[in-house]
């Protein structure tokens, strides 16, 4: 996965990856990653959990704006089946910030 991400970035398109295995990501060194301590098969959470899926997706997209150091991996703090996504704070998206309307 990281190899594909690297190839896309090499062509000049900014990329972000979601990782479920940090050691593998550290080895392949893709440019921007959000790491989630979730089981394989669940990079955006649980079936039907719209708030959870949206939250993780928004974090990944915010990483495109917020990560300025090549290779940075942002550890998402969410806990599998424990985090309440109606109340969860994002490490990348402070409340009220229109991060999607700006560049870095």
């Amino acid at each position: 996965m990281g190899l594909v991400q690297r190839a896309i970035e090499e062509r000049g398109i900014p990329t972000v990856g979601v990782s479920l295995q940090r050691t593998a990501t550290e080895a392949v060194r893709p440019p921007r990653t959000v790491f989630l301590r979730y089981p394989f098969g669940h990079p955006f959470g649980r079936p039907g959990a719209v708030a959870e899926q949206r939250h993780i997706l928004l974090d990944a997209l915010a990483a495109l704006v917020k990560i300025c150091v090549p290779g940075e991996i942002v550890d998402l703090p969410y806990r599998w089946r424990r985090t309440d996504f109606a109340a969860a704070a994002s490490p990348l998206r402070p409340p009220g910030e229109r991060w999607w309307s700006r560049v870095a």
């Binding site: 594909v4 398109i13 990329t15 893709p30 394989f40």
Partner: peptide, 21 residues
């Protein structure tokens, strides 16, 4: 990977999200 990257260029992608399983 380079072929997919080339197609994404041609598609006019400005940003790409890569998701695992």
């Amino acid at each position: 990977a380079p072929e997919v990257a080339g197609r994404l260029m041609a598609d006019g992608a400005d940003v790409v999200l890569v998701a695992p399983a």
